[in-house]
Design a protein around this nucleic acid. Structure first.
Lengths: 192, 192
DNA sequence: CCATTTAATCAACGCGTGTTGAATAAGGCG
DNA sequence: CGCCTTATTCAACACGCGTTGATTAAATGG
C-alpha cells in the first residue's frame, strides 16, 4: 500500500534531526526553558527551518507526544494476540511495566506544573474528601484507601472536565444521578 | 485574629487592579495571547510593576486559580451545614450547578489545549477501550456507557499520573492488582 | 545530465519578555 | 506636619519569538 507520497529526503532528514534534538533537550531540561535556538543549534539547521516544519515548540511537543503514545498503543495492542483493542485493560501489569520502562519520558510529560495546577488543586481537594469518607466508613476492603481515593477523585474530576468541555450535554440533575450511581458502585455513599 | 500585617494600600490597590484586568482579559481572549502589556495597560500600572508582584503571567494564572478554587470549596462547604468537608460528594447536583453557573471561568480553565494534549490522547484511547468493553459485555445498566467509560478512563489515567508523579511508590504488580479490583467493582472484567 | 522545483539559509524586522538602576511619588508613623 | 520608607515609574538592556523576502543549494524527474 504505497501511501508514501515521495517525500523529499531533505525534509525527512531535517525533521528527524529536529525531533532528535528536541527529545534530547526534553530529557535534559525543563520544556519551559527550551528555546527554538537550542533546538536548531543542536539539530544543525537554521532557526527559520524549524518554523518551516513546526509552528512553534508546542507543536513540536504535540507531534512528539503523538509518536510516543502511538508506541504505547502499539505495545498494548501487540501484547494481546487477538483482540488488540482491549489489551490495555485486560493486561494491566505489562502496561504499568511499560510506564516504568519509559519512566523518564512519562514523568517529563506529566511534569508541566504550570498548566496542571488547576486539575491538581481540584484533584487534591476531591481526593482528600473521598479518602476521609473511606476512612469514616470503616468497611474493610482489599483496596488501598489512598489509591481508591485517587481513583475516584480522578474519575470525578475527569467527568466534570468532560462535561464542561462538551458544553454540558446533560443537565446537572442527570449528571448528579449518574455520578451518584458510579460512586455507589464503589462503596462511597453520600449519606453517612 | 488580626493576621493582617498592615499591607501598604498601594500594594493592595495595584494587585487588585492587575487581577481584575487579568480576569477581564482572560474571559475575552485566549490565555496564550494575553501579554503583560495588555494587563498593565488595562490595570493602569507600569509594565514593570506587574513583575514586582508576579513572576510572569503563569504565576498570575496560578494565583487566580487559587482564588477561584477557594470560592468553589467555600461554596461546597457552605452548602452542607455540619460536615463541611464531605459536601462535595454528598451533594452532587449543587456542585454541577455551581460549575454551570461559573461555566465561563471553568471552560476557560479546562481549555488549555496545548498542554492537555497528552492526557487527552491517553484518555481518548483508554475511554474508547473501556466503552468498547462495556458495549461488548452487554449487561444492562442504568449508567450511560459514554459517561461510564469517561469515568473509568479518567480514573485509570489519574492513577497512572499519580503513580508516575509519586515516583512509582508501588511495584507494577501491586498497581495492576489494585486497579484490577477497582475495575471489577465497576463491572469491567478483563477477560471476556 | 540538465532544467525545474522546492527546501534550506541568511539577514533583518517588530514585538514581547524579564531585568536593572536611578528618579519619583505615595503611604506609614512619630 | 514632616521625616523615612518603599512602592511605583521610567528608560534601557539583552534576548527569544515568529515572520518575511531574497539568495543558495539540493533533490526530483524527464
Amino acid at each position: 500500500m504505497g501511501t508514501e507520497a515521495k517525500i523529499d529526503r531533505r525534509i525527512v532528514k531535517t525533521k528527524e534531526a529536529i525531533n532528535k534534538a528536541f527529545l534530547e533537550l526534553f530529557s535534559e531540561k525543563d520544556f519551559q526553558h527550551i528555546t527554538i535556538n537550542d533546538i536548531s543549534e543542536r539539530a544543525n539547521v537554521n532557526r527559520g527551518t524549524v518554523y518551516l516544519h513546526f509552528t512553534d515548540k508546542y507543536d513540536l511537543l504535540d507531534k512528539s507526544i503523538e509518536d510516543h503514545l502511538n508506541k504505547l498503543i502499539t505495545f498494548c495492542s501487540h501484547h494481546d494476540n487477538d483482540e488488540a483493542h482491549v489489551s490495555l485493560i485486560s493486561e494491566l501489569q505489562p502496561v504499568f511495566e511499560y510506564f516504568e520502562t519509559h519512566f523518564l519520558f512519562f514523568s517529563s510529560m506529566f511534569a508541566n506544573r504550570r498548566t496542571f495546577v488547576f486539575r491538581e488543586r481540584m484533584l487534591q481537594f476531591v481526593s482528600a474528601s473521598v479518602e476521609r469518607k473511606l476512612n469514616d466508613q470503616k468497611r474493610r476492603s482489599a483496596i488501598n484507601h489512598e489509591l481508591n481515593a485517587q481513583f475516584m477523585a480522578s474519575a470525578f474530576v475527569g467527568i466534570v472536565e468532560w462535561w464542561i468541555q462538551h458544553d454540558m450535554p446533560h443537565p446537572p440533575a442527570y449528571m448528579a444521578d449518574q455520578l451518584w450511581r458510579l460512586f455507589e458502585k464503589n462503596d462511597i455513599y453520600p449519606a453517612q
